[in-house]
């Protein structure tokens, strides 16, 4: 009798736990759907061609976000150009030359921390390390600049690329390396032409993920690239970027600015989601080979 009640108690407890876990999953998915839906509904109503062709307007008049899109694209491109080679080099070094060494493990550890370090601190770092000296050198002619914004973004790119390069290279079978070495291939050639080529898809994924990460970043740009009302392609001047404009417009009291902010947010979200889908596709295709 008591045996049966014990059974029932255990089964009951189990039932509760399972229901709760299903509820938790639904709870998690609910937010996803809610957030995406509002972004799409609010954003789609403000989406039109002018968004991509006109400048950011003063409150009360129509306009678009063309200069912000341009600024974001420009800074992301420069950030990738700076960050990718450095990250790639560090990743190759970690995987090929320092795989089990103490220094290698330390760098890996630090890199992992850098990967999730608060981005606003990176912005502060660029501010004190780049903007203040540049401003002092140029007699306050150069303050906030697009270049500094790109540097801050590059700091975000590096750890992502290091991590994925390192992981992807470690996945390559050592028999391949040994076969190449047995044929007398020098180490640098082995690394560049064999291992790196085999891991190409993974490395490309890393770069895409890094791009996805920096397109949505606002915090480090607030006081590096600052923002600009007008079209600017001067790297030494402040430049507009989509996330910062979205931030400023969303915090403003004007309705037409709000709807522009939603449109910008929608484009950002779609772009980032597309990138993460793309990276997943590349990985999947690579795995099936």
């Amino acid at each position: 009798m008591s045996n049966e009640s014990l059974y029932r108690k255990r089964a009951f407890k189990n039932r509760i736990a399972m229901v709760l876990s299903c509820a938790a999953t639904l709870f998690g998915l609910l937010w996803l759907v809610w957030i995406l839906l509002t972004t799409i509904i609010k954003g789609a109503s403000a989406l039109n061609l002018a968004l991509f062709t006109e400048m950011t307007p003063p409150p009360g008049s129509a306009g678009g976000l063309a200069n912000a899109f341009y600024g974001s694209a420009l800074m992301s491109l420069i950030a990738l150009l700076i960050g990718t080679p450095i990250g790639l080099a560090a990743g190759v070094w970690l995987a090929e030359f320092a795989r089990h060494s103490k220094l290698g493990n330390t760098v890996r550890f630090i890199n992992d921390i850098l990967l999730s370090a608060p981005s606003i601190v990176l912005g502060l770092f660029v501010y004190t390390g780049v903007i203040l000296p540049m401003s002092a050198l140029s007699n306050h002619q150069i303050g906030f600049s697009a270049f500094a914004g790109s540097l801050a973004l590059a700091l975000l790119v590096i750890p992502v690329v290091v991590r994925t390069t390192d992981e992807m290279l470690q996945l390559q079978p050592s028999t391949m390396r040994e076969a190449a070495l047995a044929l007398g291939v020098p180490q640098w050639k082995l690394t560049l032409q064999i291992v790196l080529r085999a891991a190409k898809a993974g490395v490309v994924t890393g770069v895409i993920l890094a791009l996805a990460r920096i397109t949505g970043e606002t915090a480090p740009l607030l006081f590096t690239a600052f923002g600009n009302q007008f079209w600017s392609s001067n790297l030494l001047k402040p430049i507009a970027s989509v996330p910062v404009v979205v931030f400023q417009y969303a915090m403003s009291p004007y309705d037409d600015w709000h709807s522009l902010a939603w449109a910008g947010a929608l484009v950002l979200t779609l772009f980032v989601l597309m990138l993460s889908l793309l990276s997943r596709l590349i990985l999947l295709r690579n795995r099936s080979h």
Binding site: G28, W31, L32, W34, I35, L36, T38, T39, A212, T215, G216, E217, T218, P243, V246, F247, A250, A261, W262, A265, L268, T269, V272, L273, S276
Partner: peptide, 14 residues
């Protein structure tokens, strides 16, 4: 995981 990919500013606006 998609939820992790959404930029933080979108969360803020929402």
């Amino acid at each position: 995981e998609l939820l992790a990919g959404i930029p933080s500013i979108i969360y803020g606006m929402w």
